[in-house]
Amino acid sequence: MPRYDRDEVARRAGFGDWREAVAATAGLSQQEAARVLGVSHPTVRTWRAAAGQSVAVARPTAEQAREAFRADPGDERHGSANGYRNLGCRCPACTAAWSRYRRERAAGGS
């Protein structure tokens, strides 16, 4: 996208200029920021680099994500095989979901 279009795109998304848009979406992934701004994620990457900002958002480690999941009983992933297997939750709902999943797999279901 040509430079002179940056400000116009940012204004359409509700920001004063492209630098303000980049700053306001700094905590979002490139894909999330692209949706907010109405541009492609490579454009977000280019804008962040031009503004001297880190291109990628720091993400929590896998263990930090697991801990945050376990600490939030309202997370919609509780009661799923994913919660048990990938996120390491052993709450009764996740344990039951994992047991159900394993029974279905053993019976030939998918």
Rank of each mutant, 00 (worst) to 15 (best):
N86I: 00
P73S: 05
Y84S: 00
N86W: 01
V44K: 13
A93S: 06
G14T: 09
D5C: 04
G14M: 08
P42G: 14
G83R: 03
A24Q: 14
V55R: 14
E20C: 07
E67V: 04
H41L: 11
A23E: 15
P92I: 02
L28G: 09
T25H: 07
R35H: 10
D72K: 06
V22L: 08
Y84H: 02
F69W: 04
E32M: 13
C89L: 01
V39Y: 14
G16N: 04
A49W: 06
A107I: 03
C91D: 13
R77D: 14
G52V: 11
A93M: 04
P73T: 02
P60M: 14
R12P: 09
G14S: 07
V57Q: 13
P42F: 11
C91F: 03
A58P: 04
A96D: 13
H41I: 08
F69V: 00
G108N: 04
A49D: 10
R6M: 09
A93P: 06
A71I: 04
S29Y: 13
D7I: 04
C89F: 00
C91L: 09
A26M: 12
D7W: 09
A58H: 05
G83K: 02
L87C: 01
E63T: 05
G108H: 08
Y4G: 09
P73F: 02
A93L: 07
A106E: 15
T95Q: 02
V39P: 11
A51C: 09
E8Q: 10
R90P: 02
A33Q: 15
R48N: 08
R6K: 14
Y101M: 01
R102I: 03
V36M: 05
E67G: 02
Y84F: 04
R48K: 14
R103S: 12
T43M: 14
D17A: 01
N82S: 05
D72E: 12
C94H: 03
D75A: 12
V57N: 11
W47V: 12
G109H: 06
D5I: 07
W47N: 11
T61M: 09
G108D: 02
R90S: 07
R70I: 03
A65Q: 12
H78M: 07
P2G: 08
N86F: 02
W18K: 02
A96E: 12
G109M: 08
A23K: 07
A96Q: 06
P2C: 09
T25Y: 14
Q64A: 05
E20H: 03
A23I: 11
E32C: 11
A26N: 06
R105N: 03
Y84C: 00
P92E: 02
A10W: 14
V22I: 12
F15C: 07
V9S: 14
R85P: 02
